[in-house]
Design a protein around this nucleic acid. Sequence first.
DNA 1: TGTTCATTGCGTTATTATGACACAATGTAA
DNA 2: TTACATTGTGTCATAATAACGCAATGAACA
Lengths: 266, 266
Amino acid sequence: MTLEKEIKDHYLYGHKKFLRHISVDCVIFGFHDNELKVLLLHAAYAQKWALPGGFILKKELMDEAAKRILKQRTGLDKIYLQQFHAFSDPERSTKKMNQQFLKNAGAKIENSWMFERFITVGYYALVDFTKVIPVADNISKSCEWFNINKLPEMILDHRNIFNEALKNLRMQLNFYPVGFNLLAKKFTMPELQKLYETILHKKLDRRNFQRKIMATGIVKRLNETKKNVAHKAPYYYTFDIRQYTQALKTGVAAFVGRRPIKKNGL
Amino acid sequence: MTLEKEIKDHYLYGHKKFLRHISVDCVIFGFHDNELKVLLLHAAYAQKWALPGGFILKKELMDEAAKRILKQRTGLDKIYLQQFHAFSDPERSTKKMNQQFLKNAGAKIENSWMFERFITVGYYALVDFTKVIPVADNISKSCEWFNINKLPEMILDHRNIFNEALKNLRMQLNFYPVGFNLLAKKFTMPELQKLYETILHKKLDRRNFQRKIMATGIVKRLNETKKNVAHKAPYYYTFDIRQYTQALKTGVAAFVGRRPIKKNGL
DNA sequence: TGTTCATTGCGTTATTATGACACAATGTAA
DNA sequence: TTACATTGTGTCATAATAACGCAATGAACA
């Protein structure tokens, strides 16, 4: 099937496969070069970027729809996934925008389920950046990582969805040790700290941070140091999956508390 | 319009007013006689109870749909409302159940948007019990408060939705002072404490609790004590809306922490 | 080959938060 | 008047944590 035909098919008969009015959008976070990044698709027709998203098959759990989308864009299977909010503004997607897209694609369609209102459920995912192979979908020119502080213009309310995802991630990370999902199996303490600092948007004391992390019992130090680094080589650590699973339930001490701070700030 | 006709109309033409596949369910919490309660509707056809719920008008925000439902059941306008999760099990509602209902209502319908799959978005609401006048909808026999520890059998996955709501409320209350929404304008410290103990499912020390609450700066003591009470009369307190709004953003100290406890337990 | 220096690993100290508990004050009921 | 359950206020010991010191490491450079 040609792309044009595929698009037409989706607009005309997609509602036979998918649920009407509901979509899923994924905010995929990765951490690389001491920067928090998010994976976006280039929506060529709009010259803007979009969160990877999709629709829910008629017999599919929403979580599975999100997993399917993530698998397609990242190639990854078992990733940390969290539903965080449903967005329902009646004006969040418009018929006009769809017709713009169809025009660019060279298709003309009068009526479509895609022109109707959509409520989208936001998920955020935490992935190991090094394991991801970004794959664009057939209507996007490319799929790329963006530093969360240098985001391009985004379609619809995707910027807002991203903001909410980050807010949720921040709260989550403060009480649950989910950050490990963003790192490779082996990581150094400075890497982990930078991850926390980036997400929580707050400077942390190096020595207190280490103590707090070790107190959780989640990480184990390996008998191996990082090679080829300037200055003193840091140890590698891994996290203990059993302890981690436990800590996910009970939570850990907050990193951003409400105790008065004299010196450290943002 | 008769009830029978109304039901038939809803099944046959409801999809012209409402979005397909999406519903909203509300877990309405109230606090009375030192007990946490939830407002349920009696679904006569199933001899079970249901969370107040409904559908989303074609041009309506989901939050507004939830508010509309709450207004109908409680008569209240401005109440604390929180979206907490979307439930998407394809089997959560079934055609069979709908037909059971229609049979009991004396209607016969072959096809309906109501037979299709629904994803429901859960909201929880915190209301002032004394202000609520429970109103049943036209397909329910009654609308009643239930102690959360003595819940009746519920339809569909409503029991699960309730459980998730309580879990979310617990987490919320631990870090944000949302509990005040469940009390009248004036309340005593023992009342507030009982509220926290009930929701958090944990005994708290009376004196430390008072210290912690006062430290938030949210409550003001009034120059008035409770009357007609056995033993020493407690003072009344109110909460300062300005301080409260601030605290909603920044959060407060956790009531259930991870610090080892020697004596207090559940 | 020795020096420099940013960074790491492993501490200590001071302060704050909080769990545990004592005791006097209050006001109804016996 | 007395008994007693409950409230209001305060103290103490300890755990948590913010702040900070210092030696060890190892690449870069003279």
